[in-house]
C-alpha cells in the first residue's frame, strides 16, 4: 500500500476520533478512555517502516490534532507524537519484531506519550491534577483501548507499512 493511501486512511481515522468514536463511547467514559489512533499508526510506521517516516507522520498528524481542536495551546501533540514515534523507530527499526514485542512497545510508547503530554500541560500550568490522578483517571484506561485497537489493526497495518517500504529495505538488506 502506498504512502498516500495510508495517509488517507489515517485522515479518516483522525476525523472519526472526534465524531463517530465520540458518539460510540458511553458518556461516563468520555475524557477517560482517550483514543490514540494516530499514535498507533505512527508507532506502526516506526516499527515496520523507519524512524524518519514515524517522525514526519507524527509531527504532521500531531499538528493536525493540535490545530483541529485548538483551544489552549498548539504543538503539544505534534512534539510528543514526533518524539515518541522517532524513539520507537530508533529502538525497534533494525529488529524483527513479533506481535508480542510490537504490542509491548506500543503499550510502553503510549504510556510515555501520555506522560510527556501531562508534563507539558503541567509545565505551562494548564492542568493542576497530580500525575497519579491523571494516571488513574485516563492514562491507564486509554491503554486498554490502544492495545485493542492495535491488535485489531495489527495485520493490515504491518503489511501496509512493510510493503510500502519494501523496495528500499530489500536493497538495504542485500
Amino acid at each position: 500500500m502506498s504512502m498516500q493511501r495510508i495517509i488517507v486512511v489515517m485522515l479518516l481515522f483522525f476525523l472519526s476520533e472526534g465524531t463517530i468514536f465520540y458518539w460510540l463511547l458511553p458518556e461516563s467514559l468520555i475524557g477517560r478512555v482517550v483514543p490514540h489512533f494516530m499514535l498507533a499508526f505512527v508507532l506502526f510506521a516506526g516499527l515496520y517502516r523507519n524512524r524518519h517516516t514515524a517522525l514526519i507522520l507524527g509531527m504532521s498528524f500531531g499538528l493536525l490534532q493540535d490545530l483541529a481542536f485548538y483551544g489552549k495551546i498548539i504543538g503539544v501533540h505534534a512534539f510528543t507524537m514526533a518524539t515518541v514515534g522517532y524513539l520507537a523507530g530508533l529502538l525497534m527499526e533494525r529488529k524483527r519484531s513479533t506481535l508480542f514485542m510490537a504490542m509491548s512497545m506500543i503499550l510502553m510508547s503510549t504510556l510515555v506519550y501520555d506522560t510527556i503530554v501531562y508534563f507539558i500541560y503541567s509545565v505551562f500550568k494548564l492542568t493542576h491534577g497530580t500525575f497519579q490522578w491523571a494516571l488513574l483517571h485516563h492514562i491507564l484506561p486509554s491503554l486498554f483501548l490502544q492495545v485493542l485497537f492495535s491488535l485489531a489493526l495489527y495485520v493490515p497495518l504491518r503489511r501496509w507499512f512493510e510493503s510500502s517500504g519494501k523496495k528500499k529495505s530489500d536493497e538495504d538488506e542485500e
Binding site: 465524531t19 465520540y22 477517560r32 482517550v34 483541529a68 483551544g71 489552549k72 503530554v117 501531562y118 492542568t127
Partner: peptide
C-alpha cells in the same frame, strides 16, 4: 466535533 483530550475538551 468534540475533542477527547482530557486536558483540552
Amino acid at each position: 466535533s468534540a475533542s477527547n483530550d482530557p486536558y483540552n475538551p
